[in-house]
Amino acid sequence: MQISVRREGAALVAQLDEARLDAAVAIQFKDRMREIAAGAPERVILDLSRVEFLDSSGLGAVIAVMKMLGPDRRLELAALGPAVERVVRLTRMDTVFTIHAEAP
């Protein structure tokens, strides 16, 4: 599970370097994001530009990461491809996450 981390202003941007965020990697994703979340600033942006496929297990892991960040920090999503966007919209999680067309 490869996740590249960079700072953009006050935000931390975590770019998932995987083509699929699915049941095969959901736990590794959560574990790696837990490390990244330790000491993260108030805004964390998950850059999904390289992710071509998201299933409900992957989405559940993203939601778990949002909860892991706690009430004082927020997780935003950026650069959703067509298949990822379809799942996020159909589950109405687009009403919960702030979504950016492109990663900063």
Binding site: I63, M66, T91
Partner: peptide, 21 residues
Amino acid sequence: LMPDPHHRPEGGFGWPLIRLL
């Protein structure tokens, strides 16, 4: 039935997605 997104569910999306799609 899709779970309520505002309850921040970590699962339960699978079958509703299958039925929708």
